[in-house]
Every structure is written in structure tokens, then in C-alpha cells.
């Protein structure tokens, strides 16, 4: 799976979280989701690269792998059109 940021009107970051203005809505993201968003840009990034970044900051999750945990988060962000996703293991 690969991920990139969709077109956003604005992102405001404060104390490790952020508010994202996407479409007609302003959504407040969790710290992990903020890390994911800030790691993405216009270019595609692989889920494993994202997982490395998140694990460096937060350590491994108690259950599952970081990559497995992120898969659900990334899908959720894609549902809000904050991230675009591509790849065969979607």
C-alpha cells in the first residue's frame, strides 16, 4: 500500500495534533494521525516507511504490528479524503 496527501485547504498543527480543512469540513486528528499526515506529501510513500516513522515516535503497538494498525488508520483518513491510497494490498 502507498499513501499520499490529498488536496487540503489548510492544516493547523498545535501540540502534536492538527486540524485539517478538507472539502467542506474541519477535522481534528489524533497525534498518530497527525504524524502520518505530516509524513505525507504530494509524492507516494509506502505504508512500511510510514510505519517506521510512527514506530520511531510512539514505539510498537501492544497488539498487531505498526503496519497493520496503520492500515486501518490510513483507510479512515482516505474515507475523509485526507489521504489517497494505492497499491495491491488495499
Amino acid at each position: 500500500m502507498r499513501v499520499r496527501r490529498e488536496e487540503l485547504h489548510d492544516v493547523f498543527v498545535e501540540d502534536g495534533r492538527c486540524a485539517v480543512y478538507v472539502q467542506d469540513e474541519v477535522i481534528v486528528l489524533s497525534p498518530v494521525a497527525t504524524t502520518v499526515l505530516l509524513a505525507t506529501g504530494n509524492k507516494w510513500i509506502s505504508l512500511s516507511e510510514l510505519a517506521d516513522l510512527v514506530e520511531q515516535e510512539y514505539g510498537p503497538p501492544p497488539r498487531q504490528t505498526t503496519e497493520e494498525t496503520l492500515r486501518g488508520l490510513v483507510r479512515e483518513l482516505a474515507n475523509f479524503r485526507i489521504l489517497g491510497i494505492a497499491g495491491s494490498s488495499m
Binding site: F12, E14, R17, C18, A19, Y21, E25, V26, I27, V28
Partner: peptide, 10 residues
Amino acid sequence: PTLEGLSQIS
């Protein structure tokens, strides 16, 4: 809080 305020005021 600022972030929640941004969401609500928008």
C-alpha cells in the same frame, strides 16, 4: 481548545 474551536467555528 484551539483545534476543537477551529472545527466548531468553521
